[in-house]
Amino acid sequence: MPMLEITGLHVVFGGLHAINDLDFAVEKGEIVAVIGPNGAGKTTFFNAISGMVKPTEGQIAFEGRSLLGLDPNKITSRGIARTFQNVRLFANMTVLENVMVSQHCRTRQRILDALLQTRRFRTEEEQVRARGKEVLGFFGTRLTGYRFDQPASVLSYANRRRLEIARAMATSPKLILLDEPVAGMNPVESAELTQLIGKLRDEMGYTIVLIEHDMSVVRDISDRVVVLDHGEAIARGTYAEVSANPQVIEAYLGQSADGS
């Protein structure tokens, strides 16, 4: 049974069919890339999985249980975490607080614990802090040391993208949805992050679905590729298969002919 199984998904905004009859499945331990021209509905697809947009029709099941109708935080506690294409950190919280707050659904302390400073509170706080530092440490020294206490808003763009991934990891997910993780990075940074995404799967055991425009990244790490255009899956397969598909080339050419 696939880890995530989506059948007949439709998302309609007013008159716009953003996702049109999409079937999609991810097996545990896979890295699947979702590609497609701008406005193809990729981000909307992630929004539907993470519960931020309610599907108009269709089924979404994670580990055999339906996700439909669940609030985003319930979906996160089931084990799906995501990042945002347009980096949305908690800008006025510190780097460490960003990864501490995203452990919310894995922690149990109550208000009274905090007020009375119970043993449960202190050990849990200790663990949350340690776990936060651990996920930040995944990116080398870039987000550690004095950066723990800096507000997220002062980070460089690339570091903000890294912190987004760290924040997703801190929710202790099984499946991570990465929305254009290397967008806006230079080739060196992008190659480094690509390697880290590989490590996320190989060493940390996460299953990964990523949206990406950078074809070299897609080629390097994805096991499978799904191509979306106008909300429909127009091709599936390995990178080699998909990149040779005339329909895909057409979709991309048509787009670049529009000038974007």
């Binding site: 993470s50 519960g51 931020m52 609030d71 985003p72 935080n73 996160t76 506690s77 975490a81 995501r82 945002f84 949305r88 908690f90 800008a91 006025n92 919280m93 607080e97 501490m100 707050v101 995203s102 452990q103 919310h104 659904c105 894995r106 922690t107 302390q109 208000i111 614990d113 905090a114 007020l115 400073q117 509170f121 849990e124 706080e125 949350v128 924040r167 997703a168 929710t171």
Partner: peptide, 29 residues
């Protein structure tokens, strides 16, 4: 005490960006 606890961080995350807070597992309600 509350500011430096689980609920305090959740409050701040909600203040910063409510929908992201919810997507990060905070029970915003």
């Amino acid at each position: 005490r509350l500011e430096n606890s689980r609920i305090g961080r959740a409050w701040m995350a909600i203040r910063e960006d409510e929908s992201v807070a919810e997507a990060m597992g905070v029970d915003t309600v």
